[in-house]
Design a protein around this nucleic acid. Structure first.
Lengths: 238, 238
DNA sequence: TATCTTTGCGTAAAATTTACACAAATAACA
DNA sequence: TGTTATTTGTGTAAATTTTACGCAAAGATA
C-alpha cells in the first residue's frame, strides 16, 4: 500500500487541495434477437431518485477503476461480464449535483439469458436502445458514446459473439451486426464473408425453430479469430 | 458552480470518504520525416526527479479533464494542439508513490516545426519512439497504449495530416503511415489509393528537394475526408 | 552526357465485393 | 397429402478493388 496522503480529522479525510470524487459507470449491452438493449437501474436515493441510471458507484482506495466497475456491477446487478471496455471519461464541472464528480465509463456485453438479476424483484430493467427514458446525470450522453465505441470496436474485437448465445444462426448474427452498425447487409454476402474469415464454426447440433426453414447453428471460433487479426495487420489496408 | 462537498479545516479539505487524486498526462506525437517521436519533460521535483516523464498534472475543481490536459500542456510545453484524444485511464493502486493517484491519458499530434518550446533552454525534448528512456511512474505503459490508440484511430480519423507540414509529398505521407502501423506499402498502390479516396489534394507549389527527383506536393482535403467517412459507413464492410 | 537515386504512373493478373436469382426446409393449412 | 408462405442456404456473373511489378521521368552529381 502507498503511504497515506491524507490526514484523518474529526471532519473526515483532509487533503492539501480539493479533490474530485471518482466513480465508474457501466453500459451493459444485450440483444434480444431483434433489438440492441441496455440494462438500467432505478435510483433509490437522491439525487435523481426514481430516475433510471447506469449501474456504477464510487472508487475505493484499494481498487483500480476496472475493479471498481466490476464490483459495482456485481453489487447492483449480479452481472459478472468477461470483460469491461473503458471508452470515455466524463468530467463536466456540473455533471453531478452532489459536487465535483468525474466518472470513468465502461461497456460490457452479456448474453441476456445468462443474467440472473435484472428480472426478479430487482430494480434493474432492460430497455431497447432506441427507446430510452431520460436518464439521471449525463448518462444519456454516456450511452451515446458507448454506442459509438461499440460500433468502432466491432471491427477489431469479437464483440458480437459475447451478445449471442453459444450457438446462433447466421441471420441472428447478421441482425446483430446490422443493429450495431445501423446498416443492412446482403444475406448471401454476409454469410460468405463470415465463414471465409474463419471466425465462426458450423455446429452439428440440430436447430429448433418455428415457422419456416431453420438456420444452421454456428459458434464463435477463437482460433480463427486470432488468425484473422494477424492477417489483417499485415495487409495493405489503410 | 456546485454546492461544496467538503469542509475546509485547519488540516485542509476534508471529505467523508478518502479520495484519489486525479491527474492528466499527454503523449505528444511528432514526426521528423523518418521517425515517430514523443515529447517528454524532465522532472524537476521528487518523485522521479531527473527522470523523463509525460507532461501532465493535477485536475483543478473548475475544469474538465480535457481542459486540464490542455492547460498542463500549455504550462509545461507551450504547445496548444488542435485536439486531444482521450485513450485510457491508469489507476493501479500503487502507480504513484505520493499516494492514490489516477491519471487520464490523452494523446496529441503536432507539427514539430510549429512547437515553440521544447528546443530552447527548456527541459523538454523529443525522443524517437523506438528508443525511449525508462520513464517516471507507469508512463512507459501509457506510451505503449498511446501507440495502439494511434494505430487504431488512423483508420477513422485524419490523424496523419496533423503530424505533417501543410504541404507534404506522397512518400513522406507513406513513411508516416508505415511508421505508425508498423508495415510497408507498395509505393504505387499507396499513392493510388490515397488520391482515389479524396483525402489529399495536389498543390501547385514547386517542391524544393535535393539529391533526386522531387515529389509532388499535396495537402489534406477536409471536404474529401468527410465524404470518405460517409461512404465508409454505408459500405458492407464488417 | 552518363549514372545514381527516388518519384510518378501504368498495366495485367488475382482477389474480393456486389447484386441477384433460385432452390431448400419447415410450418400452416386447405 | 399437396399447396402456400416465409425464411434460409447457395451459386454465379459482373463490377470493382487489390496486388505485384515494371519502366519512364526528374533532379543531383560527377
Amino acid at each position: 500500500m502507498n503511504k497515506q496522503d491524507y490526514i484523518k480529522t474529526a471532519e473526515g479525510y483532509a487533503y492539501d487541495y480539493p479533490r474530485a470524487a471518482v466513480t465508474t459507470d457501466c453500459v451493459i449491452f444485450g440483444f434480444d434477437g431483434t433489438q440492441l438493449q441496455v440494462l438500467l437501474i432505478e435510483r433509490g436515493v437522491e439525487p435523481y431518485k426514481g430516475h433510471w441510471a447506469l449501474p456504477g458507484g464510487f472508487l475505493r482506495m484499494d481498487e483500480s477503476v476496472e475493479e471498481c466497475a466490476f464490483r459495482e456491477l456485481r453489487e447492483e446487478t449480479s452481472i459478472e461480464p468477461e470483460m469491461l471496455e473503458q471508452f470515455g471519461v466524463f468530467s463536466a464541472v456540473n455533471r453531478d449535483p452532489r459536487g465535483r464528480v468525474i466518472t470513468i465509463a465502461f461497456y460490457a456485453l452479456v448474453r441476456k439469458e445468462a443474467v440472473k438479476g435484472g428480472d426478479d424483484a430487482s430494480d434493474a430493467r432492460w430497455f431497447d436502445i432506441d427507446s430510452l427514458p431520460h436518464l439521471a446525470f449525463d448518462h444519456n450522453d454516456i450511452l451515446k458514446e458507448a454506442r459509438q465505441a461499440l460500433k468502432r470496436d466491432i471491427h477489431h474485437q469479437p464483440v458480437a459473439f459475447k451478445l449471442l448465445a453459444e450457438h446462433f444462426t447466421m441471420p441472428q448474427l447478421q441482425r446483430l451486426y446490422e443493429r450495431i452498425l445501423g446498416v443492412t447487409f446482403d444475406r448471401g454476402n454476409f454469410r460468405k464473408k463470415m465463414i471465409a474469415s474463419g471466425v465462426v464454426r458450423e455446429e452439428q447440433t440440430k436447430p429448433v425453430y418455428t415457422g419456416h426453414r431453420p438456420g444452421k447453428l454456428f459458434s464463435f471460433n477463437l482460433f480463427g479469430y486470432g488468425k484473422m487479426k494477424e492477417d489483417g495487420s499485415n495487409s495493405q489496408e489503410f
